[in-house]
Amino acid sequence: MSLQRQEVEKIAHLARIALSEQDIPEYTRNLSNILTLVEEMNTVNTNGITPMAHPLEAIARLRPDVVTEGNQRDHFQQIAPQVESGFYLVPKVIE
């Protein structure tokens, strides 16, 4: 399977990844090669086979709905790129 440049740009947008102009041809080639590799899956008939999401078929464990972790906002915000008065700062979203 061969991807076009525009498709790679669209995937990069969906993945929220900025690619530089000069890198796009290489990504296009590499991603196309990987998709060609996975095409081998089409040689297998999988009609009626239930997809396997968990290796041991385990289901999510439930726990009582009680608080187990206290608020550690200040502790966790110490590693944030930019905070102010307990808020994470990002560029202005609403003008």
């Binding site: 996975v38 086979i49 997809p51 396997m52």
Partner: peptide, 12 residues
Amino acid sequence: AYYLKAQQIRRL
């Protein structure tokens, strides 16, 4: 075509 198919072959 991709994810579901892969999860099916994973079972095989």
